[in-house]
Design a protein around this nucleic acid. Structure first.
Lengths: 223, 223
DNA sequence: TGTACATCAGTGAACGCGCGTTCACTGATGTAC
DNA sequence: TGTACATCAGTGAACGCGCGTTCACTGATGTAC
């Protein structure tokens, strides 16, 4: 096989190796932020982990901040891929909640370092990273609200109320994520799944009784 | 007035001044973590802010970690005081949700730096601080669950379901706290309050319809 | 009240360390002819 | 195919800096008699 004919997976050796080093830097940073927080992580630590000299870092990123932003992007790219798949899978009306929660929690467990990074840096010391994570989450909530708008029974719901509802659900899933990450790496997450599932079912139970109106108070409480 | 007779507010001058410096260190640290995260905050920065020499720090704390743990304690002490007051104020059945949310959000705004610190360090780089914050939140959820257990209508609820319910509510309040802290310091929080209030009302709306049973699935969905 | 001594919060010099960043470099890979 | 030159990922020495921590100290406050 001639060295110059490039097939699918085969990049120019030079460019390919550079790409590999770049990815190695990203992977090393992700591995290392399991302990330190991101802004306590030094450029030298990352290059040491990869096995290159500190100055070589600048061949790939302008700064640690730039690397961090790429990590945020990587994290959400994989998450978005999953959510898209979940959405396309249509709604099997029953078991929807159970399946969704199980899928999501399984995904968190399989991508632990990414979620650890996102949860931590959501409040972290680097402003640009923080705000990028938050805007991704906000986008997420909006997309879920749009999905709900298409449900039968959502006719009377105001936009704000749809956002309120999906905000509540995303909040519950974020809580579940926190709890999964608190568990030891390979632990059984059944308790977390069961609780999160109940929370979603409880929320859904309320929706038929909600009167979405500009701002009139409800007198619905039954007990 | 003789210097040696000690009245209420009057400590021995020596001890009083030491206490003042200690508090100044805590205040300075709290002020400074608005920018950096706590584990990016140096001992020297804190002492510089107070106006003492770095080595004097050790007259008051063994390490920055110890200072951080005291900050966690201070934060929750003030929060607990508020919650106790709210609990003692009995329940005026109507407007309870509205008043609770308004009180809580107002409290967050009035103690912004403490909550900023708690939210950030909940996922921060210092393990002992992280776990102390989490255990305080867990305690909080449990106490709320105990309160719910005393409500009429909570007879049929299992312990797990009460915890699930209060977990959902605390989660919603944590989301609201995040949103308040995202606003500029003196901004109007009415939108956040209104959304959080709706979320709590939605949750409460569901409770009469919830059948708390070991693990039998629900067939309650009405739409 | 006056004197001699003890306490201890804060001082200031000094240390060794890891940091981010600069710079001129090396040598393997890639390209032109 | 062979040669001469260009590219550029990674090197390694060097820099100035802020860090946490040590140590012996100072001098005002407090205490014993």
């Amino acid at each position: 096989m001639r060295r110059h004919s490039r097939h699918r997976e085969e990049l120019a050796p030079r460019a390919e190796q550079k790409q590999q080093t770049r990815q190695a830097l990203l992977d090393a940073a992700l591995r290392l932020v399991a302990d330190n927080s991101f802004d306590g992580l030094s450029l030298r630590e990352v290059t040491r982990e990869v096995g290159i000299v500190p100055t070589a870092f600048y061949r790939h990123f302008q700064s640690m901040e730039e690397l961090g932003l790429v990590l945020v992007d990587e994290s959400f790219r994989t998450l978005r891929r999953m959510m898209r798949a979940a959405r396309e899978g249509a709604l099997p009306h029953e078991q929807l909640v159970k399946r969704s929660v199980e899928t999501f929690v399984g995904y968190v467990q399989a991508h632990r370092p990414y979620f650890q990074f996102l949860m931590r840096e959501r409040f972290g010391g680097v402003a640009s990273i923080r705000s990028q994570i938050r805007s991704e989450i906000r986008l997420f909530v909006s997309e879920l609200a749009t999905d709900f708008a298409r449900f039968p029974g959502a006719d009377g719901w105001s936009n704000e109320d749809l956002q309120m509802l999906s905000g509540l659900i995303v909040g519950a899933m974020i809580s579940a994520t926190e709890q999964v990450l608190e568990l030891p790496p390979r632990a059984d997450a059944d308790d977390v799944i069961r609780i999160a599932e109940k929370q979603l079912r409880l929320i859904i139970l309320a929706t038929p009784h909600w009167k979405s109106q500009p701002s009139r108070p409800q007198a619905e409480d039954a007990s």
